[in-house]
Write a protein that binds this DNA or RNA. Sequence first.
RNA 1: UGAGGAGUAGCCAAGUGGUACGGCAUCGGGUUUUGGUCCCGACAUCCCCAGGUUCGAAUCCUGGCUCCUCAGCCA
Length: 562
Amino acid sequence: MSNEADTPRNFIEEIIEDDFKTNRHGGKVVTRFPPEPNGYLHIGHAKSICLNFGLAEKYRGRCHLRFDDTNPVKEDIEYIESIQEDVRWLGFDWGEHMYYASDYFGRLHDYAVDLITKGKAYVCSLGPEETRKYRGTLTEPGKESPYRNRSVEENLDLFRRMAEGEFQEGEHVLRAKIDMASGNINMRDPVIYRILKAEHHRTGGKWKIYPMYDFTHCLSDAEEDISHSICTLEFENNRPLYDWVLEACETPNRPQQIEFARLNLNYTVMSKRKLLQLVQEKHVSGWDDPRMPTISGLRRRGYSPEAIREFCNRIGVAKRDSVVDYALLEHCLREDLNRRAPRAMAVLRPLKLIIENYPEGQVEEFEAMNNPEDPSMGTRRVPFSRELYIEQDDFREDPPKKYFRLAPGQEVRLRAAYLVRCTDVVKDSSGSVIEVRCTYDPDSRGGTPADGRKVRGTIHWVSATHALGAEVRLYDRLFTVENPDGEEGSDYRKFLNPASLEVVKNCYVEPGLGNAETGVTFQFERLGYFCPDSGDFTAEHPVFNRAVTLRDSWSRIEKAGE
RNA sequence: UGAGGAGUAGCCAAGUGGUACGGCAUCGGGUUUUGGUCCCGACAUCCCCAGGUUCGAAUCCUGGCUCCUCAGCCA
């Protein structure tokens, strides 16, 4: 348990604590997580969720969940549901504080009318093309719209008729009257309302005009009495507009926008557009495909909320653009699961092993630890018999140096069972080994030889007659390069990893795994962490997904030896 | 060529004028009935560069350089 006083504060916490000193927001912290319901949440959102809810928790404030639903043509109820599920699954609770920007459409409309009345907004009748031309460029100032100086009465009348649906989309917009010569393009009379004759998933056909983000977000924050409105770096340029709107509308409180660097992870893509494209073009099975960096994908993959939260804590919060190594995410998963995952034995690529001196038909049960890291998790009984399956990788007819597993004449421990020595092999017509013959040491019950001799290798196994057949899906990174959308002019889909999914059908798992529950991730000893697939697992046809492998130093040694 | 940001190890990230925390990755070694875990050790004479101030600079000043964001009636 680390002491809060000695852990370094990130820059946002410093701002908050400074605000406490000056009583800037009445000593309160109210944050919000404001997704647009136009896609599934991903690990980048998890960073924001952990930040916002975490701050509220740390400073005893509250955090709202708010759907930023101002663009009905892109949004959908499906996303609203998945977002709530994902936030909850991550372990956060917004209590009573769930809101929709669309709840404020009425208030927003009033504010717009107020701005018009004050001469701070006007109806502009330039088309989209014209508007763009008048806006100027990054280096040249814009030109004022010919409609900029319409009278308050005319603006009021036009805006009312826009709202009543009298005009077509694109005919008019409402613009804030700021400064067409500003170096910040956002300040060049930004559009704050546009005509959209779309059915809204919450307000139905009531509105023919919808407010834009820059007008909506700050005012929604003010409505909810948000103190610190935390968003990502690309909104830095929007902050002057955020402040301008609040000032112009004379809201009673002034939330402050703070920007931080969004999460980037190597070997994946994070933009909603690209994730949607992967789904629509069937490069993956859906938003919750275990290879997706979505929360639902990670969940189906076998990730725990704890691991994701720990990851978010470790990556830090700063303003520097950064790309976090995928290995850190995997590390956080292994760390959590090592502590908590029940162990089990599973053989992915079976090789039959027959114990010649073990009585035919005899069955013993061995006590195996459910988790050596946590004895309180108890033990389970695993059946053992004369015919077993072991991993093909755990036998070499011609073993390299320092190979501690099975080979002709070599002895290994069968985990939690007996010591066996290989006496012979059986090959098929093509010369591959299809069966390994062994003898066992009856005085090594449980794996400890009576004479105390040392045996370096321990391998996992299942009893051939008792094991359950299973399908196992081995997942690897979705892309073959660190930065799939890095190269200019080249399509990220070119770097899709063709080996990101390997389905292994003829696996055997210990019998107890037949009634595994979804949501629990197991450690298959010596292999990795696996969870029952939430979509396809049944007791009759068990399907497991590999979340992550165990660290494997042997593969390194072997590689180095080549 | 405008405006706004950012540069500390392979990747994150502390550091706020007193001599570079921590994590991941990597590389050694030990323990081990998982080649897992765990434990021990190594890993920036240097903080984008160049000047300057100072007894002392990653921190202050000046001048450069590089990278990111913005020209949706998206968010």
